[in-house]
Nucleic acid binder design. Structure first.
Length: 553
RNA sequence: GGUGGGUUCGUAUAACGGUUAGUACUCAAGAUUUUCAUUCUUGCAAUAGGGGUUCGAUUCCCCUACCCACUACCA
């Protein structure tokens, strides 16, 4: 049985919005809010709208809006309406009336009349107290361990159109440009609200204050007014936003009521916050720096030149990032953990969103990336690996033939170790063998660099353990055996005979193999010997055996 | 301080009022493998505390504790 359904009978098209403020990079918690909105819209065949809430001119940060749109794009969260990464209006062609512009600073003209309407109806009033006067008052009362609150009691003794006669305030309205319009919070009223996630909530208006709705100085509304007016004008049906807005929900209810918009009032859902992995409090940029993980989807450089890392730049796949985020505070009710965006769209429901705050777990984020990395094709991973290889000075060519005509000395496997030239096929084969060992594509180099460059040094620890005459003498013979192997030079056909050769000579398998590995890798870790030699080829094997002989004797 | 929200293994979470309280991540041990990694198996580990209601409470109610948010002419 539904908790409530005050307009579920109304046949409105689902329209939800994500309304960020361009005051800096989008936090991953913000991405989650956007994601839940997006999933909800998709699931209900509705519209997802991005609205830029830039009503605070003092906190505006250049580039932040572009960053936000780009970050959402990277995540696959594309608006049906709003602004794109170039700042242009996005609107799906439809029979509906247009809702643009989607930037509140460009909508400034429309808010004043709504604010004045509230004053005329007696739901709001003009206030002439300066910010300085009010903060002085606050400090003064705080010193007496009391809390100043602008409400039905204090407003009588403050400077506003309620306490003063019109003959007194009207001239101020004309002459001054620093007044505000405040909401007249009613006295002793219980506001009854419903939240899609939290259920029924009641609050007494006596605990609330007269919020500023409109600022004459900026000719702009504050969040509360702009939000209600725009949600109404844009025909928003559900407001899915962060928990920090729950305390202002009564005001928002009262505003809808004052405007007479209750019938089309959106339903509300307040999402819990993302918490630090350890300790107390909500997840902040500092936690990322301290614990070594990004808190932003994309890298961000602030005005001071300080760089904050991003999931994208850290090598996360957007699908993995989105999947991880979706599961932080929501679950499908069963044991499934891996979801594509499409699957999320089908499975998502606000009813299953968790009420309590979710602690972020960086380990789980890595696990998700690992899972997605293994799901990628060898071809795709090869494409992604190539820039990493090139960064390390490797040159990747389409085919061996064209490289040879250009002067390269390619082996049968497609490698020129001297000139660091390798074919795509060479890389692809390596990728297929190492992808299960990595979390990020960038790990490939650390895991497999020895398949591109000969080891220059040898792990002292491993050498001390394995590089003994009784082990390396057989190892050199085994290398000769491989070199002289006449069968098909593949892992499958070489592996058996090689093992048989070592075993039949009565040599210790592990020690001999690790001596070879030391020569080929530089340490006693890595792929199977048969894999390594059939990748790098006989000549490179011989070169590396010669090299270790010279260096370790 | 006030108001609102929240509380199941370390973390994310599951569990019509009836389960040996499940799963995943992390960690540990073992098996497999020529090493490492993978894989597989096993293990560690939770209903914040106290009262009710009930035959029976993780689940419903109350109190306490703790955590979070809000308490701006910021969003």
């Amino acid at each position: 049985m539904p908790l409530f359904n005050y307009f579920s009978e109304m046949d409105r098209k689902t329209r939800v919005r994500f309304a960020p403020s361009p005051t800096g990079p989008l936090h991953m918690g913000g991405v989650r809010t956007a994601l839940y909105n997006y999933l909800y819209a998709r699931q209900h065949g509705g519209d997802f709208i991005i609205r830029i809430e830039d009503t605070d001119s003092h906190r505006f940060v250049p580039g932040a809006e572009k960053y936000i749109i780009e970050a959402l794009n990277w995540c696959g969260i594309i608006p049906d309406e709003g602004v794109d990464e170039n700042g242009n209006v996005v609107e799906t062609p439809s029979e509906r009336h247009p809702h643009a512009p989607y930037r509140q600073s460009q909508r400034r003209g429309i808010y004043r009349k709504y604010a004045e309407e509230l004053v005329e109806k007696g739901f709001a009033y003009y206030a002439f107290d300066t910010a300085e006067e009010l903060s002085a008052k606050r400090e003064e009362m705080e010193a007496r361990k009391e809390t100043f609150i602008y409400n039905h009691i204090t407003r009588k003794s403050l400077r506003n159109s309620v306490s003063m006669p019109e003959s007194e305030w009207r001239p101020l309205l004309e002459s001054r440009t620093d007044w505000t319009i405040r909401f007249k919070m009613p006295e002793d009223r219980i506001v009854k609200m419903d939240d899609l996630i939290r259920g029924h909530i009641e609050v007494n208006t006596d605990t609330l204050d007269d919020k500023v709705l409109w600022k004459r100085a900026d000719e702009l509304p504050t969040y509360h007014l702009a939000n209600i007016v725009d949600d109404h004008l844009m025909e928003i049906t559900e407001v899915i936003r962060g928990e920090e807005w729950l305390p202002s929900l009564p005001l928002h209810y009262l505003l809808y009521e004052a405007f007479g918009w209750q019938d089309s009032q959106p339903r509300f859902a307040h999402l819990s916050l993302l918490l630090k992995p350890d300790g107390k409090g909500k997840l902040s940029k500092r936690d990322g720096d301290r614990l070594g993980f990004p808190v932003f989807p994309l890298q961000w450089t602030n005005a001071e030149g300080e760089v904050s890392r991003g999931y994208r730049e850290d090598g996360y796949f957007p699908e993995a990032f989105v999947n991880m985020l979706a599961m932080l505070g929501w679950n499908p009710g069963d044991d499934r953990e891996l979801f594509t965006m499409q699957e999320l769209t089908e499975a998502f429901s606000l009813e299953r969103v968790i009420k309590s705050g979710a602690r972020f777990n960086p380990d789980k984020a890595k696990w998700y990336n690992k899972e997605y990395l293994r799901m990628k094709s060898d071809e795709e991973l090869t494409e992604l690996f190539i820039p990493v290889l090139e960064k390390h000075g490797m040159k990747i060519v389409e085919c061996a033939k064209c490289a040879i005509t250009a002067g390269a000395e390619m082996t049968a496997q497609g490698a020129d170790f001297k000139n660091h030239i390798f074919t795509m096929d060479y890389v692809r084969r390596i990728v297929s063998l190492i992808k299960e060992r990595a979390t990020f594509v960038a790990d490939f180099w650390d895991i497999a660099s020895y398949l591109f460059v000969s080891p220059e040094t040898y792990s002292e620890k491993d050498a001390a353990k394995f590089w003994k005459e009784e082990n390396y003498t057989p190892a050199f013979q085994a290398a000769d055996f491989i070199h002289g192997f006449t069968g098909e030079f593949s892992k499958e056909s070489l592996e058996g005979p090689l093992e048989e050769y070592i075993r039949s000579n009565g040599w210790p398998m592990g020690k001999v193999m690790n001596c070879l590995r030391l020569a080929l890798v530089g340490a006693s870790s890595g792929l199977g010997i048969a894999d390594i030699v059939t990748i790098i080829g006989k000549d490179e094997l011989a070169a590396r055996m010669k090299n270790i002989k010279e260096k370790l004797g």
